[in-house]
Lab assay of single mutants.
Amino acid sequence: NQASVVANQLIPINTALTLVMMRSEVVTPVGIPAEDIPRLVSMQVSRAVPLGTTLMPDMVKGYA
Rank of each mutant, 00 (worst) to 15 (best):
I11N: 01
Q9C: 06
S42L: 08
R39Q: 09
M59E: 03
A34G: 15
T18F: 03
M43D: 03
V27F: 03
M22N: 00
P57V: 05
N1P: 15
A16C: 08
T18H: 04
I32A: 01
I13M: 11
E35T: 11
I13E: 14
T15P: 02
V30T: 10
R47T: 10
A34Q: 06
G31S: 03
A34E: 10
V30I: 14
V30G: 07
V20F: 14
A16M: 09
N8L: 06
L10Y: 08
L55R: 01
P29D: 08
L19V: 06
T18M: 07
T28I: 06
D58F: 14
Q2S: 14
V60M: 04
V45S: 10
V20T: 12
N1M: 15
A7M: 04
M59D: 15
T15R: 06
P29C: 05
G62C: 11
V20Q: 07
S42H: 06
V45L: 13
L10H: 09
N14G: 11
V49H: 02
I37P: 00
D36Y: 11
L17E: 01
A7N: 01
P38C: 06
Q2M: 08
V6M: 04
V41I: 13
M22L: 13
Q9Y: 12
I37Y: 03
P29I: 06
S24F: 11
N1G: 15
P50Y: 13
A48D: 14
S46F: 12
Y63K: 03
A3V: 06
E35S: 12
V5R: 01
Y63G: 03
M56C: 07
I11L: 14
S46H: 14
M43F: 11
V26N: 11
V5S: 03
S42F: 13
S46D: 12
V60E: 01
R23V: 04
D58M: 12
S42N: 07
A34S: 13
R47H: 13
Q9P: 00
L40R: 01
N8V: 10
P33R: 10
G62V: 03
V6D: 00
A48V: 12
M56A: 07
A16V: 09
S46P: 03
V20I: 08
I11S: 01
A64L: 12
T53H: 14
N8C: 05
Y63C: 04
D36Q: 12
I13R: 10
V20L: 12
V27R: 08
E35C: 14
V60T: 01
